[in-house]
């Protein structure tokens, strides 16, 4: 037996043990490297609670929360994608299929539209816009869209196909409405929305971390209890119910958790194209027949890819950084294509 084979049989969990250090390394690199070139010693000083005021500002208030926000958002998107792909039995499912991204976009457009006329008369002044409310507004909009899709689909029996069709239909309407509102706008609002739509970790602060973290924990703590229902929901409804699954209840719980994770992440960082779609496929490809590995791999890969993608965008773009959404879209497409080629 060759070495790779031996490793595979002796250590069946090797992908996890390999990926964990990679994730750690990526996170560290993302904190130590950036647009502002700072010596590693100084970064370390800040992390240990010392360092100059400037360094503390750059690392503690800008880079660290940005990396952690990215990490959490990566987990949210990829786990939501995995859940949606499993229960809709549609390999192309991701948060946009539940209308979540579109709902968040519409909510944010409406919010900026109203906020400007409500609080300020000059639509060209950027700083007068209440951007700190965007995550919450986006999350509520996305969540609401998910709930609307859920109830529409439930009226017709909540099958995977129903959910998918309702999601796509609702998403298309919401998207059209959002574009309609945006098209009649001043430049400052347009800039904010475009920045948000591209999916960006720029200027993400501890507020975003505090916003995401409770939901991340809630989602991750629920996952062990959902492991078997997720496997079950990959059968058709009759089979799953005959095996003893309360199909409707478990389908609903998982769908709503997926919407919660997706909506909060979309609100915080904008729709990161491809993360929710590609990461579960990558995890499944690496895990192969070891189903138990898919979930942890999805979590690790999601966090790693977003953090690395953001770092790449910062390093390549310099001060004109490339939004993470652009990086994941450009990087995700080839990954998806090569996975498709390998799956018969």
């Amino acid at each position: 037996m060759n070495l790779a084979g031996t490793i595979q049989t002796r250590f069946p969990d090797w992908p996890l043990w390999t990926l964990a250090p990679v994730a750690l390394l990526a996170g560290t690199a993302a904190v130590f490297m950036g647009v502002v070139n700072m010596p590693p010693g100084e970064v370390l000083n800040v992390l240990l609670g010392h360092g100059s005021a400037d360094a503390r500002l750059i690392i503690g208030d800008i880079r660290l929360p940005r990396v952690i926000t990215g990490l959490l958002a990566g987990i949210h998107f990829s786990v939501a994608g995995l859940l949606l792909q499993s229960i809709t039995r549609n390999p192309l499912a991701d948060p946009s299929i539940m209308g979540v991204s579109q709902g968040a976009t519409l909510a944010i457009s409406i919010f900026l539209f109203v906020a400007v006329y409500g609080f300020n008369s000059d639509p060209h002044v950027l700083y007068s816009l209440p951007v700190q409310w965007l995550p919450l507004v986006g999350c509520l909009g996305g969540g609401l869209a998910g709930v609307v899709v859920y109830f529409l689909a439930m009226r017709h029996g909540l099958s995977p196909l129903r959910v998918t069709l309702c999601g796509i239909a609702v998403g298309a309407v919401l998207h059209a409405l959002a574009m309609g509102i945006i098209s009649g706008w001043g430049t400052a609002r347009l800039e904010i929305v475009m920045q948000w739509l591209a999916g960006s970790l720029y200027a993400r602060s501890w507020d975003h971390v505090v916003f995401l973290l409770p939901l991340t924990l809630l989602g991750l703590l629920a996952l062990p209890l959902l492991r078997r229902p997720i496997d079950m929901l990959r059968f058709d409804a009759d089979v799953a119910r005959s095996f003893g699954l309360s199909y409707r209840r478990q389908f609903s719980i998982i769908l709503l958790i997926a919407c919660m994770l997706a909506a909060s992440a979309v609100g915080a960082v904008g729709p990161l194209i491809f993360v929710g779609l590609v990461v579960p496929h990558l995890a499944r490809f690496i895990a192969g027949r070891r189903f138990a590995l898919v979930l942890p791999l999805t979590i690790f890969l999601g966090a790693t890819l977003v953090v690395v993608g953001d770092l790449v965008g910062r390093l390549i773009g310099g001060s004109q950084e490339i939004p993470i959404g652009v990086v994941t879209a450009i990087g995700g497409a080839p990954i998806l294509l090569s996975l498709l080629r390998r799956t018969p």
Partner: peptide, 22 residues
């Protein structure tokens, strides 16, 4: 009946069941 209690007593195999490929 709760679906799980029922499944301990009664099992059903439909005509063309679908399972994940892998």
């Amino acid at each position: 009946w709760r679906r799980r209690d029922l499944a301990k007593r009664l099992s059903f195999l439909p005509q063309a069941p679908i399972a994940p490929d892998e």
